[in-house]
Write a protein that binds this DNA or RNA. Structure first.
Length: 473
DNA sequence: CTATGGCACGGATT
DNA sequence: AATCCGTGCCATAG
């Protein structure tokens, strides 16, 4: 149905097949570790580094404007960033200083950005605006972020450590807080919300009292005591509800946290994890009807190839080394091939996924198209397990900045859960599960009453009798 | 008596 | 083959 012609590469040997499978099952971050390990102990493998734009991570051809992020490139900005030793360890261990972009001789894959973790990601954005002297301050701040992307240490500690004025630290921090994900480096969830709100206010209308609600009624807000909050602000509960809804859909108190959050039995049970995206999905120039742009992030930065010297040496290798070298050579070769294969599979998969799930990506949970891995495998003409592996563990960042696990594309229950959320939101007085079930049936969703109850609790919605009446009748 | 949540079973999915 | 998920039945809470 969909024209895909990327099928040229088929695994030929069992070894090839096996390794392709393992690589496919890996996250970009895991893969990076693997490649780095392989680079370290296989002399046949060589990495040709590529200079990259610090703001968007694209490889750099010449100076001038970066074609992607349209910020000025000039060679001065490309100099390596220097950190104190501890930070340097950190950044190099996560690959911040050395991200590499795979490509092999005949596959110039240049529109692949490196996979980043939070500190590196932010750093790259602010690098162009960051004075060289301030880099160590930025690094200090970024390495001190907690898992939620919040800065829990005191500012004066930083200023004292670097012997600079606190104002300067604040300047740097400000820069950080205003980059993606907006609000990173805030001292508290509250502050993060305020920053986000501020920025949002410049782009669109926001509820007038949203700011005061966050400032004065933060804990009421987070505990969902809307009626009390209403009293505090002097407005009816419906308005509070509206504000709360606005906040929960547009703002994120934990900027570093992946947004898909823990949906387990009502309460947030499992600790939220921050994942680096493996895939970025974006829209071209914000136009709603423009095609979706998909980037499959590459684990390394540079091009991976067989070392030419090694190749030469292999031809007239000493007898006792010959076999070992040959092995190394084949291993390296295999790795490169498999990586290419992996990228290929991912690309094919994402092509279809973005076509099928376009509405979901742009318009939200309600529009998720029911899809199983099996049916996708059929379209791609690959084995089901291939799709399974390609999906497992991977995460994607949507155009609106939300992070979702790739498996969400296959979640049957999602659209129905979204509907339930909506139904309950609009209800006048609490609807029982069976009533909700009836409404869903009218909408054409066949689900059992019991199932509705499950979804409802998954969404953190209380049972009907416990739910407070919203309507002021 | 009604609405819910727990447990467990079977079919689908991976 | 293992796991997940929807569903039915039943006990219990209101």
């Amino acid at each position: 149905m969909y024209p895909i012609h990327l099928q040229q590469l088929r695994p030929q040997t069992t070894a090839h097949l096996a390794q392709t499978m393992t690589l496919l099952g890996m996250t970009t971050a895991e893969l990076r570790q693997n490649i780095e390990a392989e680079l370290a102990n296989n002399p046949a493998l060589e990495l040709q580094e590529v200079k990259r734009c610090h703001s968007c991570g694209r490889s750099l051809v010449e100076s001038g404007l970066c074609p992607v992020c349209s910020r000025p490139h000039n060679p001065d900005q490309i100099e390596p960033i220097v950190f104190t030793s501890a930070q340097q360890d950190y950044f190099s261990s996560i690959g911040g200083g050395a991200q590499h972009n795979i490509h092999t001789d005949d596959l110039p894959d240049d529109n692949i950005a490196p996979a980043l973790d939070l500190p590196t990601y932010v750093l790259q954005q602010i690098a162009p605006e960051l004075a060289v002297e301030d880099r160590s301050i930025a690094a200090h701040i970024l390495t001190s972020l907690d898992d939620d992307g919040l800065l829990r240490i005191q500012l004066f500690e930083i200023s004292r450590y670097h012997h600079v004025s606190i104002e300067r630290v604040i300047q740097v921090l400000d820069l950080i807080q205003h980059s993606e994900p907006i609000g990173v480096g805030a001292a508290s969830p509250q502050e993060a919300l305020l920053i986000q709100l501020d920025i949002l206010a410049k782009i669109q209308d926001i509820p007038p009292l949203a700011k005061r609600a966050i400032e004065t009624g933060m804990d009421l807000l987070s505990r969902r005591h809307y009626s009390k909050l209403g009293e505090l602000l002097g407005i009816p509960p419906q308005d509070v509800e509206e504000i709360a809804h606005f906040i929960s859909t547009n703002l994120n108190p934990y900027p570093g946290r992946a947004h898909w959050g823990s949906i387990r039995q009502g309460v947030e049970a499992n600790p939220p994890t921050y994942h680096n995206p493996d895939i970025l999905i974006g829209t071209l120039n914000q136009q709603p009807d423009s095609p979706l742009v998909v980037e499959i992030l590459s684990p390394i930065y540079g091009s991976l190839q067989i070392n030419a010297l090694f190749r030469k040496a292999l031809k007239n290798a000493p007898e006792e080394k010959s076999e070992k070298w040959q092995q190394d050579f084949e291993k390296a070769n295999l790795l490169i091939k498999c990586l290419r294969q992996r990228g290929n599979t991912m690309r094919q998969m994402m092509t279809i996924l973005t076509q099928v799930q376009r509405n979901f990506i742009l318009r939200g949970d309600k529009f998720l198209h029911p899809l199983t891995r099996a049916s996708l495998a059929l379209q791609l003409d690959v084995h089901e397990s291939t799709v399974s592996r390609a999906v497992s563990g991977k995460t994607a960042r949507l155009p609106n900045g939300r992070m979702i696990p790739l498996s969400k594309f296959f979640d049957r229950s999602l659209p129905i859960r979204a509907l339930i959320r909506e139904i309950v939101k609009d209800e006048d007085n609490p609807l029982t599960d069976s009533q909700i079930t009836r409404i869903l049936h009218q909408e054409g969703h066949k689900v059992a009453r019991r199932t509705v109850a499950k979804y409802r609790s998954m969404e953190g919605i209380l049972a009907a009798p416990t739910r407070q009446k919203v309507a002021s009748t």
